[in-house]
Computed example of a mutant assay.
Amino acid sequence: MNATENNIKLWSPCEDIFNSICRAKQNYAIVILNCRISLNIDHRRILYLWAHAKVRVTVDGGLDRWLTWVQAHEYQVSDVYAPDLITGDMDSLSLGLLQYFENKDSKIVKTPEQNETDFTKSLKELQKHCDDEGIEIDSIYVLADTSGRLDQILANINTLFKAAAFMENKNIYQIASTSLTWLLAPGNHKITIPQTLRDQNAWCSLIPIGEPCIVSSKGLKWNLDETKLSFGGLVSTSNTYNGEPFVTVTTDGFLVWSMGIEPLL
């Protein structure tokens, strides 16, 4: 999924999601938030990600949404693995449903705290679960479509920033209907870009949410050369690729990378 090479962080989530590789040997978790699951990704890929995850997490009403999605694709609930961890304030889940999955050995953790989002709380509980069970993960896939709500989009990005502190060295990818989004920490990065995205000039963005950043890049149509990105100044949205198989990014601050994946779907 990623590696470090000569102090360069390597990223290749598109290959992991869209190629037929053996994910069972990889150390990742999957988290399903309480939001609409409107993914255009082949449902078999999502089920494969779920089946081969080391930890499966549903967050509050995300359990109902996941079960509805499974049944909509003509599977029975018994056909898929139960969540390892169900977390949230549980105000939208029936006691009967929780009891059913508790009997399936799902761990139920209620998190009523309202000063954090369910997304943030779920990642903290995931970290605790891994620590308690001695499970090693390096990446987390989060089904996080936001139905167009700007406040939820920003809250989810804020969680990426918070998680950088308590889930250091974990790579958290937000999967929406037509995009992938994650956080680049200060340093050097190399992102694999599939041929299809390059051929079809799919969009990508470097967004300096949180603080201004000095950024250099290669592999983009409009590259940056020690350029200051900031709100109120330059923001690199609606960029695309120049045909090279990788994009390299050097940044002195935390930077949101988002990329369109529609041509891969």
Results as ranks from 00 to 15, higher is better:
Trp222Lys: 12
Gly61Thr: 01
Leu63Ser: 02
Met1Ala: 11
Trp11His: 09
Pro194Leu: 08
Thr87Trp: 09
Asp89Ala: 15
Ala144Tyr: 00
Lys121Asp: 07
Gln76Lys: 07
Trp66Leu: 08
Ser106His: 07
Asn40Gly: 14
Ala163Arg: 10
Met259Glu: 07
Trp50Phe: 09
Thr251Ser: 13
Ser177Thr: 12
Ala163Met: 02
Leu98Gly: 09
Trp182Val: 03
Tyr81Asn: 13
Phe101Asn: 08
Leu47Ser: 05
Cys130Glu: 09
Arg65Val: 02
Leu229Thr: 10
Leu255Gln: 09
Asn2Ala: 06
Ala29Pro: 08
Asn19Ile: 02
Lys162His: 09
Asp252Thr: 03
Leu93Trp: 07
Glu136Ser: 07
Gln152Thr: 07
Asn40Gln: 12
Pro13His: 03
Phe101Leu: 06
Val31Gln: 01
Gly233Val: 04
Ile137Ser: 09
Lys54Val: 12
Thr178Arg: 06
Thr178His: 13
Ile140Glu: 09
Glu244Met: 10
Thr250Met: 12
Lys221Met: 11
Leu10Pro: 00
Glu116Asn: 14
Gln174Phe: 15
Thr251Val: 02
Asp64Thr: 05
Leu123Arg: 10
Glu262Thr: 15
Gln174Val: 05
Ala202Asn: 10
Lys228Gly: 01
Asp60Glu: 08
Ile214Thr: 14
Ala176Ser: 15
Ala155Phe: 15
Ser78Trp: 02
Leu123Ile: 08
Asp60Tyr: 06
Val70Asn: 15
Ile30His: 02
Ile108His: 10
Leu126Val: 03
Lys9Met: 06
Cys204Ile: 08
Leu67Cys: 01
Asn223Gly: 07
Gly187Leu: 04
Leu143Asn: 02
Thr87His: 04
Gln195Ile: 09
Gly61Cys: 06
Asp42Gly: 06
Ser12Gly: 13
Arg149Cys: 13
Pro112Lys: 09
Asp252Tyr: 04
Asp138Ile: 00
Val249Cys: 10
Glu211His: 11
Gly187Thr: 01
Asp64Tyr: 04
Thr237Lys: 13
Ile261Glu: 07
Val235Pro: 02
Tyr28Cys: 08
Leu197Tyr: 11
Asp84Met: 03
Ile172Arg: 01
Thr120Cys: 10
His189Gly: 13
Gly134Asp: 02
Asn115Phe: 01
Thr68Gly: 00
Lys107Arg: 11
Leu123Val: 11
Asn201Thr: 14
Glu211Cys: 11
Ser216Glu: 11
Ile193Asp: 06
Asp79Phe: 05
Ala165His: 11
Phe18Cys: 05
Leu93His: 05
Asn156Ile: 04
Ile86Phe: 01
Leu265Ser: 03
Thr146Met: 03
